[in-house]
Design a protein around this nucleic acid. Structure first.
Lengths: 341, 341
DNA sequence: CTGAAAGCGCTAACAG
DNA sequence: CTGTTAGCGCTTTCAG
């Protein structure tokens, strides 16, 4: 069923049918109605490839997701999908699994498929890969901090400041021996969080203890293992700042398994404020990150560029959103203030 | 940069270039190498639309996901993506949000884009929608039980039996007043789970109490609200069987808020065995569902059909996978048996 | 307002 | 082994 069938049935040329599809205003109402009727009856839909061949517009954006089983990333993805769907675009979600090679492979696919734009969530790609995309004039937006973001639009929070805020809260709650469990992935954001941790300690004039800083897999299991090691130290810390809630969940489990009490023996602080963080026991103090909003803002920015509102040569934008402390029981704050801020 | 540029640079015809791309064995080694070199240098990639126009094969499958923030669905999706990626296919993941209209919209898109196959996870579509797809000769696999699956390949567990098994466990643990909280979505599977619940009661010759059966949103919040109502009943149940772990999590939270002890005052049983289910307190007894495996099997089945191993007119297959009880503390089993089975 | 025809980039049958 | 050429289905000038 193609445009010629329709044309024949309507007794017009293919050009006319094409017109009612693309510029209906240039067709006489009578012929237009006739053609529209036939189109409806036959449920004809123009061949997508033929269309793409002419337009080089696909109504598709690419979305790189570090890991589709991590609800932090999926919250962001949901934000992107929400606006994409509303704009009648479709988002090709790519499950990158924190693997630069896989991300690169997906990137090639996306370029090949001529997507109209790409959003990277916490990408692990390097500058030269992004340049590849820019050469193709494909608009790009990064969500999450990135070292190589120069020249690219970015939507993010300030990881370093947020981490600092978190550690400061632990300090204010009376802790001095504070450890940090930071995830291997996403690498760059966690480096910034680590920097925030170190700076907070420094400003408090506390020594930096090498043993208190551990890299772990960014999973519940990673957190479990990391906290276990910390608890087994000769001089164990009294508080743990985890770079993600998942790590914190694992840490809490390990602490309990060691027979220690949270927060009395060891306090825990997470990062992200995923839905489960106030269902574990004790409820987890954490840093609330506006995940969904980041996705929405990122997508809006991308569509502004795609739809040409934004001049392509304009200065790249960096949108920095605010994080907030969510104070709950796990951090052992002195007063019971519920959820501050 | 198109095939003609390459042909010109190599001093050959476009046909020859096309050949080295598609049937390199039919090209003289010398010319082939020359052309391959130029292709590599110029980083030429054939226009995807032009290709699709000729082949009507896209290297893409559609994947309908009820809700991308629900890790149960995403585990399945991950299974699908794993095999798709390995087969060098790309999966268009569609976030349906339990909304039949949105699912239909996505379906139209997928058909328009000529995907090579579609996998539906717990679809809410009706028979006639599936017929639409079958008319287009697009292979389809359903993951999750479905009333209208006749004539379609299905990969699933037996929800009714699994639910029955769950309720039986509660019965064996000494409970008699057992309530059920079932999620609005995915509708059909939950109907089957409910049937299992009813049958288990019947076989135990226990009365069915209308108030003990509540429909709630399939979320933590839904579970919270539902359990709260149950706890406020004049004659409250002593155990709750939830149709999903998320509902169970919410229920546990509500029970605790009411000042009741789990499992002594009220036992809780979930369904799915999501990662968090042994991190809540007490650890949640639940039904383990082989989510990832379901995705893998579904995808394999689909690719068998796509790649023609499976004759299109063959009898539709139904692959039923096994669920298992995961017995933990929340159900209040008499003996401490750890995680049975 | 409508039709004829060129062309988008690629593939494959056909001839050589 | 390679080139010519006719499509694939659609859009869009250009004439009329």
């Amino acid at each position: 069923m193609n445009i010629r069938h329709i044309a024949k049935q309507a007794g017009v040329s293919v050009a006319t049918v094409s017109r009612v599809l693309n510029h209906p205003e240039n067709v006489a109402p009578k012929t237009r109605e006739k053609i529209e009727k036939i189109i409806a009856e036959t449920e004809y839909t123009p061949n997508w490839f033929a269309r793409g061949l002419n337009f080089n517009k696909t109504g598709t954006i690419g979305l790189m997701i570090p890991h589709i089983l991590n609800s932090v990333h999926m919250e962001i993805a949901k934000g992107v999908e929400d606006v994409a769907h509303q704009k009648e675009y479709i988002a090709l979600m790519c499950n990158v699994e924190h693997d630069a090679a896989k991300e690169k492979r997906y990137l090639d696919q996306l370029i090949k498929r001529r997507v109209d734009g790409i959003i990277f969530i916490c990408s692990s790609l390097e500058k030269k890969d992004f340049q590849l995309v820019q050469e193709q004039k494909i608009p790009v937006v990064l969500i999450g901090e990135h070292k190589n973001s120069l020249g690219l639009h970015v939507v993010s929070i300030d990881c370093k400041q947020s981490a600092k805020k978190a550690v400061n809260h632990l300090l204010e709650s009376g802790h001095e021996k504070i450890a940090m469990l930071y995830g291997t992935e996403p690498q760059i954001e966690n480096e910034y969080k680590m920097a925030g941790y170190k700076q907070a300690l420094k400003e408090a004039e506390l020594p930096f203890v090498r043993d208190y800083l551990r890299e772990v897999e960014n999973t519940i299991e990673g957190g479990y293992l990391g906290a276990k090691k910390l608890a087994e130290l000769a001089d164990p810390p009294r508080a743990i700042f985890a770079s993600s809630d998942y790590i914190a969940f694992g840490a809490m489990d390990a602490i309990k398994d060691k027979g220690l009490k949270i927060p009395d023996d060891m306090a825990v602080m997470g990062f992200d404020n995923v839905r489960m963080s106030n269902l574990v026991e004790p409820k987890l103090t954490t840093v609330e990150v506006p995940l969904h909003k980041m996705g929405v803002y990122g997508a809006r920015l991308l569509f502004d560029i795609i739809e040409g509102e934004e001049e392509p040569e304009t200065e790249p934008k960096t949108i920095l959103l605010q994080s907030k402390l969510k104070i709950r029981k796990s951090s052992g704050h002195k007063e019971r203030i519920g959820e501050m801020f």
